[in-house]
Write a protein that binds this DNA or RNA. Structure first.
Lengths: 342, 342
DNA sequence: TTGAAAGCGCTAACAC
DNA sequence: GTGTTAGCGCTTTCAA
């Protein structure tokens, strides 16, 4: 494109190639019935003018934007950052781009993410709410493609992609039981199940595994925490030992907690995995690199991303919101050195 | 909005309020000269119809999208995830949203991020290249608002936001020198400065600090690594000790490396900070929570984000690309427990 | 203070 | 095969 000239339009290309704008549009959209000569003239004109189609005009006309909204609690949480990365990858493979909204666990902003959909700025919304209440579900009504992530909202009028928090926690606990653990602590657990959250679901899985094995549930082994940081994981271990509790297995409800747990145990010269086996949750990048490397639940972010994006695209193709449904994502246990292989 | 009806347009509102579309448009854009009665009729009609303006139409007409492109290497790297979070926050404060592109350190995709700007899909681009070459700089030409992040490309025809890698590394090293360290290792450093990268810049700062203090540069203290993971940090320490090297200060070129360093030292029963002082770089969330908490360089992501977004917006206001310039971001040392306070 | 009308740049009928 | 034309839904002169 000649510097200084205004941006070329379809019209300019048509004029230069001596064809109609429709032909140029057809060319751009790979219309098959076109003489090679015409095609070539258009190609040349586009090339000479450095023409690039204006997305906004195309969007207005076609009603599509090629954009998907992804609304997550917080990119500072590694899990969500890694999920966002996968979403971007998946979207790109389908020719889509992603607008990321970070709600900061703010109910208002979770609602706003949904409301923004009324303005047709993007083709669909993937929403991971943490604060939305049952009474807010009507905010999610609409005809636009929507996918809900996570445990928080049920009854939303849309497909719902769920990681198997409960089953995965049960499997992780079972893994410890099979390894011979008799006293298994849960770091980050809670018996409060008034709201569904990943911590309550994961705790349920733990409880279920104990029940399956006929083991008693000892509430003092369920250690509530504040933030999901390694410091909290370390502190939970210190507190537990100070109270005279000596677990031989520890299930940390996320990997950062688990890193704190391992580091505290090493500090106290408790051997991992010989004396205490440790399992985490999330399979963040770093889990491979801790010492010892961390056995953990891989909730298959790639799959969550794939299912989420594909659902949006199929809703789009179908011309509107899919009915409420539940899509479960399989998890995998990643066996590493913090627990004995099975 | 009545369920089932198609989305209301400006036209519908105008008809219902018995005014022209222009008046409704004026209303939406806070045009001041309007009779209260008219205003009220429009407000009511909008309310009754549940009207929300179509962004695409508005964009086409106004030439603005309210979107900024942010192109980063990889959200799995905590630094970039936290930077993205800040960018989203800053953008939101100005009424903008952010499309995040993850290039995966792929030169092709870094170039594509720039090329995509020709289609007017977003109002500006903030690009953090890691693979772009001098010969690619012409790809960055154009009239759209652009900001470059990082050391990789110089001579780009746009404002360039730089964190003070060299000065910050120098200050971190000085901090160790002042604390009495005589043998300071750099984990992740390199003396290869054929390409400017954060590791080469940071190593330069280290070298400069030693020179200032009249200390010899001992190449065996500069430990190259593979990935920026805690495992590599731990391994570097093990290797160093295996070679009989006994540093009393360690400067890890990012926090993940530092976490591995600390964990390995504790494993070896080397006391931090008493026997070895450790300093990191990045000030990721977790740095506050390691044990001991990590002294590190805070490169002020919030500032990088603020300056980046504000530059885009001021270019937008000015109607086009700002000339090449260099915007330096001040760093801060965060003194924590892995080194003695000063 | 309000309205009519002309597009923004493109796509999609439909005609030829 | 290719061209003509009517919009997509909004903003923006300009006139009244």
């Amino acid at each position: 494109m000649a510097a200084g000239s205004r941006k070329a339009t379809l019209h300019d290309v048509a004029k230069r190639a001596q064809v109609s704008v429709a032909s140029v549009s057809n060319y751009l959209n790979d219309y098959p019935y076109m003489k090679a000569a015409t095609r070539e003239r258009i190609r040349k004109a586009i090339d000479e003018l450095g023409y690039v189609a204006n997305r906004q005009a195309r969007n207005l006309r076609s009603g599509r934007t090629g954009l998907i909204s992804l609304s997550l609690p917080d990119l500072n949480q590694i899990y969500f950052a890694e999920l966002a990365e996968e979403m971007i990858k998946q979207a790109r493979e389908h020719g889509y781009r992603v607008i990321i909204e970070s709600t900061g666990n703010d109910r208002r902003r979770e609602i706003d993410s949904a409301r923004a959909m009324a303005s047709n700025m993007t083709d669909g919304l993937i929403l991971s709410p943490t604060q939305l209440r049952a009474e807010d579900v009507h905010e999610l009504e609409g005809d636009y493609p929507l996918v809900i992530l996570g445990e928080r909202v049920f009854g939303a009028p849309a497909p719902h992609v769920l990681i198997a928090n409960e089953a995965a926690a049960q499997a992780a606990t079972e893994h410890l039981l099979k390894a011979g653990c008799r006293t298994i602590a849960v770091i980050g657990g809670t018996l409060d199940d008034t709201v569904a959250s990943s911590r309550s679901m994961r705790t349920k899985g733990y409880v279920a595994a104990l029940a399956d094995y006929g083991r008693p549930l000892r509430p003092e082994l369920i250690r509530e925490i504040g933030d999901w940081t390694s410091a909290e994981g370390a502190k939970a271990v210190r507190d537990m030992y100070a109270q005279g509790i000596r677990p031989d297995g520890i299930f940390a409800l996320n990997d950062l907690l688990a890193m704190g747990v391992i580091s505290q145990l090493r500090e106290m010269r408790v051997r991992v995995p010989e004396s205490v086996r440790v399992v985490g949750f999330d399979d963040i990048d770093e889990a491979k690199y801790t010492i010892p490397s961390l056995t953990t639940v891989d909730p298959d972010r790639a799959q969550v991303a794939r299912l989420g994006i594909e659902s949006i695209l199929s809703q789009l193709e179908a011309g509107g919101r899919a009915p409420r449904s539940r899509i479960d994502v399989a998890f995998r246990l990643r066996y590493r050195d913090s627990s004995p292989r099975v």
